[in-house]
Design a protein around this nucleic acid. Sequence first.
RNA 1: GGGCGAUUAGCUCAGCCGGUUAGAGCGCCUGCCUCACAUGCAGGAGGUCGUUGGUUCGAGUCCAAUAUCGCCCACCA
Length: 881
Amino acid sequence: MELPSSYDPKNVEGKWYRTWEESGDFHAGETDGRGPYSIVIPPPNVTGNLHMGHALNNTLQDILIRWQRMSGKSALWMPGMDHAGIATQNVVERLLREEGKRKDDLGREAFVDRVWEWKERSGGQIQHQLRRLGCSCDWERERFTLDEGLSRAVRKVFVSLYEEGLIYQGFRIINWCPRCRTALSDIETEYLDIKGAFYHVKYPYKDGSGHIVIATTRPETMLGDTAVAVNPDDDRYTALVGKTLILPLMDREIPIIADHFVSKDFGTGLVKVTPAHDPNDFEIGKRHNLEEINILDEEGAINENGGKYRGLDRFAAREKVVEDLRARGLLVKIEDHDHAVGHCYRCRTIIEPYMSKQWFVKIKPLADEGIRAVEDGRIRFVPKNWEKTYFEWMYNIRDWCISRQLWWGHRIPAFYCDDCGHIMVGMEDPDRCEKCGSSKVRQDADVLDTWFSSALWPFSTFGWPDITPALKKYYPTSVLVTGFDIIFFWVARMIMMGLKFMKDVPFRDVYIHALVRDEHGHKMSKSRGNVVDPLLLMDEYGTDAFRFTLAIFAAQGRDVILSEKRIEGYRAFCNKIWNATRFILMNLGEGFTPRPLEGAELERFDRWILHRLNGAIESIEYSLKEYRFNDAAQGIYDFWWREFCDWYIELTKTRLYGGADVPAASSEAAKQVLYHVLKTGLKLLHPFMPFITEEIWERISEKEEGRIILAPWPAVDPKFRFEEEAEDAEIFKEIVYKIRNIRGEMGVPPSKKANVIFKTTDRRTVEIIDREAVNIRSLAKVDRIEVDSGYMPAKTDASAVLPGCEMFLPLKDLIDIDKEKARLAREIERVSGDLDRVQKKLSSGNFTEKAPVEVVEKERARREELSGVLEKLRESLEKLG
RNA sequence: GGGCGAUUAGCUCAGCCGGUUAGAGCGCCUGCCUCACAUGCAGGAGGUCGUUGGUUCGAGUCCAAUAUCGCCCACCA
């Protein structure tokens, strides 16, 4: 079977993905008797499109899942999507606007129908994109946070927490997005630095005896002021406490009060108190029994409490207020003032602290459990330093506002009786009031925070509250793979909910990966316009190359700055693998039958590569266990290219092309080993590069072996531990390397064979030279080889020195004496530099006394070796005159 | 105001528990279309590991301070 000379991913990827999916290769059952390994996907938003973050996140998960699947686990990757309340509602509202409609024109029911319709038709693009990325999700199990089963889980949790008193309704200041017209939780507000201003305003005393000056960043809120506060210990103002002021523009009387919240050395030391529009002022208001005057409506405009400013948007009102104050001579000055202002994390609108009645989760009791689970190691964060971030937030956690004034989402299962005001929360919708019997019962209009349902994801997806076989087998999941940006939003809440409702952690490990940034190190975002579309990269370089790049960049604790040059490099790696396969297939020949290696007459380099293969298996396995994706990828890359292709394959050529001189058993052994290493190498590579490995596997494996996706993961084979052969191979490589170095530096063309004379009495070296002469000839382009312990070098000889062995290449007219001298001088400099360091170490008495014996011994041996080499090098240089 | 991370070759990055010559890819220079691969092969140049102290027989690796950059958290109007 002839292969084309380069690898083309185009026709390979789609074909294999379909085969895997249609054959049920991704499906993990409950009754196969194999041990569980499970991951739940961080559900992408139904509105989402695959971006770099997803690509990285899902590539890493797929690597783990494929590795574990091959390792014989029942490996389940649970896929699904998030209904993404605000984001999705925004999308559909935008579409409606294009039709000239608003959601209120449709009404709630029709609007929600419309969103579902949108979801079915154009939502969930990302699922196709994940398939393109090769993700081996168990699609049969796919879930949606708003589907029936999950909605039942959400209701169950809400009802339970309510009954326990952990969910309550409260009237307080929350973060309000005037554009989305909904409440947000604390972590849904992003604080961004704004170039604002500090407005200094005069508030006159009622008795006409003058005025005080307060400073504010939001002058329009003064319309709702109900006091001015000072620090009780502030000598400047203690006398003022109790006096009455006239609130300008509103002509309302407000008192001066004392409260410790006010700091003496910020601003003027006098603070206007607006209980309805500032969380701190709200607290002050509670302490002093102040009136809470709400001056805003839901859209952020001034309401009827704002007098003549009614109807003005908050920012227009600010300008007008300032203007009026100035006109009345009450504006003292305006200073520039940069400060952090909360923005809606969905639409970037400046949020308003706003009084309203909302539902909250009393989170402290849940958080305590969550803290303990990480403290006692039931959950392990990788890298570990994220635990600190987690603890920090969990210790200072505040009650979670869970109600949203949206239509798209899980409707809050609370019902109000219009006659008696009774509130009912339960699993079933009541048709009449359980207290007064009235049928005038209506459901709470709000829906739940999207994150409320995602918090249940690790168990709701398995069918909870039913105790299903899947739940029993796959909960707790093995690992959660996610970015640090949602530790609070998602990870912490899953931990709390899992512990609460499953009485067990939702996952053992949390692997936190970095963010993908652009080449300047900036976060990729649409507004920055620096997003790179992963799909385009996959088109251009192939999915395997793209995945491999992500994996090799995913070093712990570091951001991923993607470089296209690197992807290009790993595309070349694909091609390298492809061509290594071509070489092997071409040389196995028609009659090749795979046989166990035990029966083969293994030679030195066969043993060496098998030994190295063991090493590769071991280190890749270790790296994956520790989530060191970059090490694993680098390990497999080095093994394939630097060892298997550069050396082993080259070394087999003398045996495969050697003709009649080569014993049949030797070429047979080479073929068997080539075949074995190729297959094992493909398996090791499969989790990273699923497509090319499957494609090649089909061409080289035997029918009964099935697909590589289900092939057994390689294990270290103790029979193939060959330390001595591995050392011999290193000596051999060093010999070849030295000869090549001379040739390269002297500019000897490959077509020109050289002769080499080894001056050595070292038995091991002699044996290697003797046995590998044919390989030295082949790899170093050498003609004649002599071993002559009494050789007297000529002036036209180039030379090199190994421990216990000198090499001379008579180059005659090819040699450039000056170049050769320079080359030797460089070598001498390097070796003597090393020797100096070793000498220094050994002569400082402390070292020999305090360092471990084996380290000292090693240094001593090295000193002997280096000084031997150095001496020979100097001799060689001298001879050149 | 707290906390975290980064600073290693021209560029993008590795370097786990401190111990032989600090690695890779790309780029650069030299020579090769050698019967798997020019998406390739061989060779080479290039780093006092941000700075200053400290611990240690020994530090890119641990500690402290400092500089620069970045991120997260925080109610100072």
